[in-house]
């Protein structure tokens, strides 16, 4: 039985990961630590585990791997502490808000000889696995262009506080698709241009839409929308979409478009109920396997770092008004 602990439930994805750990026959959710004690206690109750208020005691326990779902800027400190204590780490995306932090996290885990994974569950979405297979089979031939979106509804709270999040929608919703494109093509990003701003929501102080233009090795052009532009009335939380233009054809993917339309008078809002696979389960399962076998998770810290480099370049482009190089 692999012992997993969770550090912070600031990011709502923690709930899904905790439920996934509880579903696995070969893993147990041993304890939760959270710097917000009230939240930690209530989550421990919900997921039938122990809350530990002291991070030192938590890390000194026999937990083998931790899943970190704190505010973005706290990822580094928690990862470093966990690595130092010899724990395997799965960190929520974005891995960090600066390239320096992401590099330090990769280095700390390497030094401590523990595995570091970045939570990019899209790699476990059946639709995107199918896409990956088709691309690998050469259905598109060379890929020339991609137009993508990761739209979402407004998450509120610390997500809109740059001091804790490192940035708004561009920070939150660029990395998933960046990682998917790296995974699909095996290419790295070379250049970034971004227009963003607070365009939708009143009374918030960060960007809620980013229009990001990117280039990958060999001149593959990418247009990506990272947003919190889905209204409360929209029937679902958001999307991940990709249109890939290749030498031999085109593939259009709406990754979570496996839905039934629900019209409930109790809700007075049309809703899309998803019946697709739970991609988080594959992510957590693979992390647990990596912990047990004392190896790196399949989606590594380096993958997280590469995605951070693209996001950071996008924000640098906003500041300079130019297309900038993606540092690596």
């Amino acid at each position: 039985m692999t012992k997993i602990g969770m550090m912070s439930f600031a990011h709502m994805h923690a709930c899904s990961y905790a439920a996934c750990v509880n579903q696995l026959a070969d893993a147990e959710l041993t304890a939760i630590w959270d710097d917000d004690a009230a939240r930690g206690q209530s989550m421990a109750k919900q997921y039938k585990t122990t809350f530990m208020a002291d991070m030192k005691k938590f890390l000194a326990s026999d937990i083998e791997g931790v899943i970190i779902c704190s505010e973005n800027v706290k990822h580094r400190a928690m990862t470093e502490a966990a690595a130092k204590a010899g724990k395997w780490v799965l960190c929520e995306k974005p891995l960090a808000t600066t390239v320096d932090d992401a590099k330090a996290m990769v280095a700390a885990c390497k030094k401590a000889k523990v595995g570091l994974g970045t939570a990019f569950p899209c790699r476990y979405a059946p639709t995107l696995i199918e896409l990956k297979d088709r691309v690998a089979r050469g259905e598109l031939g060379e890929i020339y262009a991609a137009s993508t979106t990761n739209n979402g509804s407004y998450p509120g709270g610390w997500f809109a506080d740059d001091a804790l999040s490192g940035g708004g929608a561009t920070m939150d919703h660029t990395v998933h698709v960046v990682d998917v494109l790296r995974w699909l093509t095996g290419k790295e990003f070379t250049k970034a241009y971004c227009e963003n701003g607070r365009l939708i929501h009143k009374n918030i102080h960060t960007d809620d839409v980013g229009s990001v233009h990117l280039e990958m090795d060999g001149g593959l052009i990418v247009s990506h929308i990272a947003s919190w532009n889905r209204s409360k009335s929209f029937p679902t939380w958001g999307d991940v979409t990709l249109e890939l233009i290749g030498e031999k054809g085109v593939i259009e993917v709406d990754a979570f478009n496996q839905k039934i339309n629900v019209y409930s008078d109790k809700q007075m809002k049309a809703e899309w109920a998803n019946w697709g696979g739970n991609m988080d389960l594959g992510l957590v399962q693979d992390f647990v396997a990596a912990v047990r076998e004392r190896r790196d998770p399949p989606v590594t810290g380096l993958d997280g770092l590469r995605a951070v480099e693209v996001t950071v370049a996008a924000y640098r482009s906003v500041q300079t008004g130019k297309m900038v190089r993606v540092a690596s």
């Binding site: 262009a145 247009s223 233009i245």
Partner: peptide, 13 residues
């Protein structure tokens, strides 16, 4: 200040 993202294709079969 409004942003518009405009995609055009003559690349579809």
């Amino acid at each position: 200040g409004v942003i518009a993202n405009v995609i055009g294709t003559w690349a579809h079969p």
